[in-house]
């Protein structure tokens, strides 16, 4: 049984008052996400990421298709007991303190008063909210609200968490903090589904990603597979290489580029078509020493840009999606 499963999930909105027209927000999204995965849901602004998350939270209803979480239909109260959700740019009751908000949400899960206090306190510690926890939320900055939002998503110790742009509004320290938190959740066996347009977050955290553009899924798979198929060459770092030996090698071995790293120390880039063993043997014979040999992958950003650029654009009308 998958932790999250969608089958041809589709959402059309109606736009226009006098002449209502359908607008494609999400088209036939099919995903399977296993237990314990950290799954990155990527796409540019307006790709349909937030629409997908709202469908999974049943904040909006699908035009067609089906979605399940933990083997049950989305919106089922038993499912809600076992999941957590951080909305994009979260807003909570500004007349409550952070502590009160968490205790209120904890009460909705049926926790006792002592348990509510314990969970609220532990989670606010975990997301780095200190003495401010007794201030009303109207006095909180965007980053602090984001931390409270993450804490409330974890109030029930969920099996699956959905984070919509979890790094939004956070400073570098906060981002690092939340990355570590996501990794801790993964280590506890929690499935994490997060949407982002910040690719470095996905690259650092995800085991698998899906890329969405213009409401359509353009690619999905393990990060290692996606990037492995796009090895674009080799990087060879050597020391003890004289300029003469380098010039000789460049003229004969098809080296695409050489970067001087220090005295007689170079990083050489070879195209995928040239096996590195032959050049390496030549360089060693010329007195050079191998420091490292690595395949050159595309970054997720390279891959993302290519996929999004290739996605079909026609989808109806102007954007209303998140």
């Amino acid at each position: 049984m998958d932790a999250i499963r969608t089958e041809a999930l589709t959402k059309h909105f109606t736009v226009g008052f006098w002449r209502p027209r359908p607008y494609l927000a999400l088209e036939a999204l099919t995903l399977q996400i296993g237990h314990g995965e950290v799954f990155g849901f990527l796409g540019p602004n307006g790709a349909g990421k937030t629409t997908t998350l709202k469908l999974l939270m049943q904040l909006i209803y699908p035009t067609s298709g089906h979605a399940e979480i933990l083997g049950r239909p989305v919106g089922d109260v038993e499912v809600k007991r076992r999941i957590g959700y951080l909305p994009e740019n979260p807003y909570f009751y500004d007349y409550l303190t952070a502590e009160e908000l968490l205790e209120y949400f904890s009460a909705l899960f049926g926790h006792s008063a002592a348990e509510r206090r314990r969970r609220a306190s532990a989670l606010l510690d975990e997301v780095g909210i200190g003495a401010e926890r007794r201030l009303q939320l109207r006095k909180f900055s965007k980053g602090m609200l984001q931390r409270v939002g993450i804490a409330q998503a974890l109030i029930n110790d969920p099996e699956v968490v959905f984070f919509d742009e979890p790094m939004s509004g956070l400073d570098p320290l906060g981002r690092r903090h939340i990355r570590e938190l996501i990794l801790r959740l993964r280590d506890r066996g929690c499935t994490v589904f997060f949407s982002s347009h910040v690719l470095s977050d996905a690259e650092a955290l995800c085991s698998r990603v899906a890329i969405l553009a213009n409401g359509r899924l353009v690619s999905q798979g393990a990060l290692s597979e996606i990037l492995a198929v796009t090895i674009r060459g080799w990087e060879l770092v050597v020391s003890g290489l004289t300029e003469t030996a380098l010039a000789h090698a460049q003229s004969s071995a098809g080296i695409r580029g050489a970067t001087r790293l220090g005295p007689e120390r170079y990083a050489l880039e070879l195209p995928m078509t040239v096996p590195p063993e032959h050049l390496l043997a030549k360089l060693v014979a010329a007195g050079a020493t191998l420091v490292s040999l690595n395949p050159l992958h595309d970054t997720l950003e390279d891959f993302f840009v290519r996929q999004v650029a290739a996605a079909p654009e026609e989808r109806g009308l102007e954007s209303t999606r998140g």
Binding site: L59, K80, P90, L108
Partner: peptide, 14 residues
């Protein structure tokens, strides 16, 4: 309007 409903309706309530 303020979107506080997102946090609330995703808790175990109908």
């Amino acid at each position: 309007e303020r979107r506080s409903i997102y946090g609330l309706l995703t808790k175990p309530i109908r």
